[in-house]
Write a protein that binds this DNA or RNA. Structure first.
Lengths: 342, 342
DNA sequence: ATAGTCCTTTGCAGCGCTGCAAAGCGCAAT
DNA sequence: ATTGCGCTTTGCAGCGCTGCAAAGGACTAT
């Protein structure tokens, strides 16, 4: 039992296969009479076009892949929820891949692998790959990079102004009267650009308020997750001079930090104020609700998809651009306390 | 500038294209000498196989699609994190799609659409589609269903024993001395099977402990999310006779409920004990940590992929089976209080 | 009546690969 | 030396569709 093909439909409708193709794709001008004949035949045979064959003939797959380090990180999950509908609206399916932040895996994906043919373009959130690594890649792959790397001119980059956002976050802590402010999430090594930009903002805010930076309050973590946040916070609380506020480099870190604080029987924000980063849904419901930096995720998703599709469509290389989405400071209970809660 | 093809490699290596194909795929027996020649040629030309062409020739795409209602629901994100590596290990790429629980969209996906050719099989977590709707589908599509529907014999179903798990959850609340136990998340309509099984467990536990069911304590919600959990809980607290414990049909609902309780200045579990369902990471870090039912997600992911791949590989229809993963009750602070915290 | 124009439909060739089965080849057994 | 066997390599045809450009047809203007 063979599958029904264009040819079968053509025969039944009494037209050429090419005409059936034109009807199916809404191509060219087809008279209503012909279209109707063809459509009737399609319905009668239960024909459906073979996308695989179309892909081969056109050389395009109609798929884009979104590569993130961790799918179970709410930030990425929320971002994906913006990307998928945006891409589908433009006729693309979305493939999702996660790399676990593994450098080799990430390198493979942007390299000249044979999977290349499976997608027309890639939206990529690197973690294990450094800025330099990003340049060693398949030059034919339309690429949009998310996060904190910057473009080398051959791909687009979409993100928010991390330094400014981090400065805002720490300034907020100063402005509610805190003086010993820690930072959790620094990554002082080549692939830690994201973290380093936030640390830069942390320093900038200190400068702004004329406060010296206590280097010992900048805590490094391997990842931006809850477990690392909790561990780092516990270490801070063990000190003789614990901080009275903490800037966490993600809401997950903040969530872990709050957990650690509660385990000591201390209170947020009375004993330690906490501000996070990303504005994941979690933070809007946790106890206390988490103050945070809210990147405009919908805008990021839309920009990334738009740029990528533009890049795919263009026959000549498109110069890479830097796109910045907006961000806002959202003050909640973890800095303002319950009374002033929004 | 054409892409390099098998033919080019064959020419350079001085063998037939078919032999190159054999080398590339590790097919058949090829002598070391030939293999080496071919591999050298491949390296020299930077050849990579065109997956699109292979797909057309073999009629398979090497992709499976995972369809979930919401990607930003941690439960699904965590599940996906199990599915993706399991599938990749078996040579399949994973496509992800989200339906927003929309009945039409879900129906289209399991129907005879042309996207069918893009994937060899589907792992599907239905929400908008009722049990009956599931039978109106492309019979050729290898399908594994997740969650709470049951198999009609043409597809596999992987889940946990929801009734037993729910009974466990509510029994736990009884066993810590609670007497007025509410349930949040019922969905008394055709597509609410998932919810209804949990309600069944809720009733079973009451029977087990010889307590009558107060129907007014069973609260329906449209979704299993934080917002609905908070709203429902707020309504319960507004009553003259609020419950002293709540069984929430997901951890997200529990998170929302706790949020509502805290907003009233009440405490968990002193005033109201809360138990959730799913064991998402969130619940392990929230304040208080959330008692829950822990389904064995890794097992579910693995079973689903294994069955699907078996189904794809089999030339004849495979009878559908019901697979049950284990579940465990995890008691945390939201029922036990801080002192006894694990 | 004839030529020119525009719109619809068609035919061809090929995208790059693999399934199938037969051809080729080297070696062992007789 | 001849036959037979088993492993390696090959050739053919075609997966189902679309790009391209030309053929066909209807209609208008002269």
């Amino acid at each position: 039992m063979r599958q029904t093909t264009l040819r079968d439909v053509a025969e039944l409708a009494g037209v050429s296969p090419r005409t059936v193709s034109n009807v199916v794709n809404g191509y060219a001008r087809v008279t209503d009479a012909t279209r109707e004949k063809v459509e009737r035949a399609i319905a009668q045979l239960g024909y459906r076009p073979n996308v695989l064959a179309r892909n081969l003939a056109t050389g395009r797959s109609g798929q884009i892949v979104v590569v993130v380090p961790y799918l179970d990180t709410p930030y990425f999950a929320e971002l994906l929820q913006g990307i998928i509908p945006a891409a589908r609206k433009l006729g693309y399916n979305v493939l999702v891949d996660q790399t676990d932040g593994d450098r080799d895996h990430e390198g493979e994906l942007i390299g000249r692998g044979s999977r290349r043919f499976l997608f027309d373009g890639m939206i990529f959130s690197p973690l294990g790959l450094s800025q330099e690594d990003l340049s060693v890649r398949d030059p034919d792959l339309p690429l949009v990079v998310l996060g904190e790397r910057s473009s080398d001119g051959t791909f687009d980059h979409v993100g928010i102004d991390d330094v400014a956002a981090s400065t805002d976050a720490v300034s907020h802590l100063f402005s509610i009267g805190r003086r010993r402010i820690a930072a959790i999430g620094d990554q002082p090594y080549p692939t830690g650009e994201a973290a380093q930009l936030r640390t830069q903002g942390y320093r900038a805010a200190h400068a702004l308020f004329g406060r010296p930076v206590d280097e010992s309050l900048i805590i490094s973590t391997a990842r931006f997750n809850r477990a690392d946040g909790a561990t780092a916070m516990a270490a801070l609380l063990d000190r003789a001079d614990p901080p009275d506020a903490v800037f966490c480099y993600s809401d997950l870190v903040a969530s872990g930090a709050i957990h650690a604080i509660h385990q000591r029987g201390l209170r947020v924000p009375e004993d330690v104020a906490i501000i996070g980063y990303d504005d994941i849904e979690d933070g809007r419901y946790s106890s206390p609700t988490i103050s945070t930096i809210q990147p405009d995720k919908k805008a990021i998703a839309q920009m990334a998809v738009d740029r990528l599709v533009k890049r795919i469509a263009s026959p000549s290389p498109v110069p890479g651009v830097e796109l910045r989405a907006e961000h806002r400071l959202i003050a909640r209970e973890s800095t303002l306390g319950v009374a002033t809660s929004s």
